[in-house]
């Protein structure tokens, strides 16, 4: 038996989502089909609203509602406007906000450098970052601690140094509550080379 084309289309679109294979896409499609129509339409409407109602902040590339001029962080006059924290994804911004340790502004790169996947400096928001530097006293490079995130931070560090802007990299540490012998050598090596006086 051939599936109706509407179902085939749904499976194909679901299958394009990251982490969803063909089997999961099929399961999800049948799951949606078995839900009350009102619930599924609500999901469809919220996808539509998100697509048309969200955009990127013109300043920092954080997610914002399309009717705002800039995002709520950039709009907050109580923040330190001399410090920028560079991150890979909007989700990282939320994580840093939850830490309660940071009061400056952000810059979202929307990815990390990955030449083999065709992601170079031009595919990230690096050009816009360089245009934001006037009046900035410090840039904190808070890309992830993967090889890719580290490479992105080092690349940016070089560009910032060339422009005479002070840059710092988030500290590498051992997870709180861990035993040294279970730490991997990269983390441990960095924790030792970036130790600080007590």
């Amino acid at each position: 038996m051939k599936y109706p084309s509407a179902l085939v289309n749904l499976i194909r679109e679901l299958g394009r989502l990251p982490g969803i294979g063909p089997k999961s896409a099929q399961r999800l499609a049948f799951h949606l089909f078995n839900q009350p129509q009102e619930e599924v339409l609500r999901l469809a409407r919220s996808i539509e609203e998100a697509v048309s109602g969200l955009s990127r902040c013109l300043n920092c590339f954080n997610v914002m509602s399309s009717d705002q001029g800039v995002c709520s962080v950039c709009d907050d006059t109580g923040r330190d406007r001399k410090t920028l924290c560079v991150i890979e994804q909007p989700a990282d911004l939320l994580a840093i906000e939850r830490s309660g340790e940071y009061r400056g502004l952000y810059h979202v790169l929307h990815g990390s450098l990955s030449p083999m996947n065709g992601v170079g400096p031009d595919q990230l928001t690096i050009e816009s970052l360089l245009e934001r530097l006037s009046g900035i006293g410090e840039v904190i490079l808070a890309t992830s601690t993967t090889v890719e995130g580290e490479a992105t931070a080092m690349y940016l560090g070089k560009l910032l140094a060339e422009r005479g802007v002070s840059a710092s990299r988030i500290a590498y540490g051992l997870p709180v509550g861990g035993d040294l012998e279970y730490a991997d050598e990269v983390t441990l090596g960095r924790a030792i080379s970036h130790r600080r006086p007590l």
Binding site: L113, P115, M116, V147, E150, A151, R190
Partner: peptide, 16 residues
């Protein structure tokens, strides 16, 4: 660990 592979002059070559 190969920590230098993240350096700007090496990372693209490791990708290659």
């Amino acid at each position: 660990a190969l920590p230098n592979l993240s350096r700007p002059e090496i990372y693209p070559l490791a990708n290659l």
